[in-house]
Simulated assay, not measured.
Amino acid sequence: MCAKHRSQILEKVREDLLQGKPCRLVSTSLIEAGVDVDFPCVLRAEAGLDSIAQAAGRCNREGKRERKDSKVLIFQSPDWRAPPELEQLAGNMREVMRNHNRSLLSPGALTSYFNAVYWSKGDELDKKKILETHNNHCRQLSFPFQNIARDFRMIETMLKPVIIEFDDKAERLLRDLEFAENASSIARQLQVYLVQMPEHGFKELLKAGAIKPIKPEKFGDQFWRLTDLDLYDEGAGLSWDNPVFMEAEKTII
């Protein structure tokens, strides 16, 4: 979901929880990044212990329930396996769980988990040899800052932003962008209408003609908009699994 859409959903979630209404939220791991919601029960698919600790922070967040009424359950699904980059972390978590079953989020359990992760990853943690480069130059005080800045990426996966025409304001901003000479102010306002996509998903949408650049002769590939709004669902946001999808009723002449 774009941020504007997400904030509306979370506002409704908080309202339902506050009023004690039944509320079931199915979410990506984004919910773990400091989102302020307080559920009585959290079910988390197997992941790294750090992710499970973050998910647990959405359970009894405000401390208003008894401990026995606040549950965090970790599950395995027979129909879904964690992607390879997460499976190793889930394996490290399972190893710690065997030894710390009653205190999985204790400091000792978390220390054991990260020791296992760092040991299993080994040299993979510094594949580009940034620390080695730094140490080789530190005695001469000739640090290759430019090379380090080029090589270091906190997140390696490249994401591409796509603008979603989510409401009337987004529509107006996109219209203004078509005629703007300086796009900086409009770009800032469009931030809440962006969906960040992995590169393979972006390429699938591009191949299907579901996204188009805005004024490429002026802005290059800076701005992309979703032109096939059938792919944006009000319950789940943007899906690129089947970019040639079209609602059945729109195929009727």
Rank of each mutant, 00 (worst) to 15 (best):
D151G: 01
Y113A: 04
D123H: 12
M158R: 13
K127Y: 12
R175W: 12
N135F: 14
D167E: 07
A187E: 15
Q146T: 14
N115G: 04
D176C: 11
S184Q: 13
K127R: 13
A109K: 04
W119G: 08
A149P: 01
E204A: 13
K203R: 09
Y193H: 01
L110T: 02
R175S: 14
V117T: 09
R98Y: 11
G201Y: 02
A90T: 06
L194M: 05
D126G: 07
F179T: 15
N99H: 13
N135Y: 11
S112E: 15
T157D: 12
P107S: 03
G108A: 09
F202T: 15
L173W: 01
M197W: 03
F179S: 13
L159C: 09
I164L: 02
M93W: 07
Y113D: 06
L110V: 12
I163M: 09
K203E: 00
E178C: 02
P144F: 01
I130P: 00
R150K: 14
F166M: 12
Q191N: 06
S106E: 05
L104K: 07
V192H: 02
N147K: 13
E178R: 15
E204L: 14
E199F: 08
L190W: 01
S184D: 14
I155A: 05
M154Q: 11
H100D: 01
T157V: 14
Y193C: 00
V96K: 01
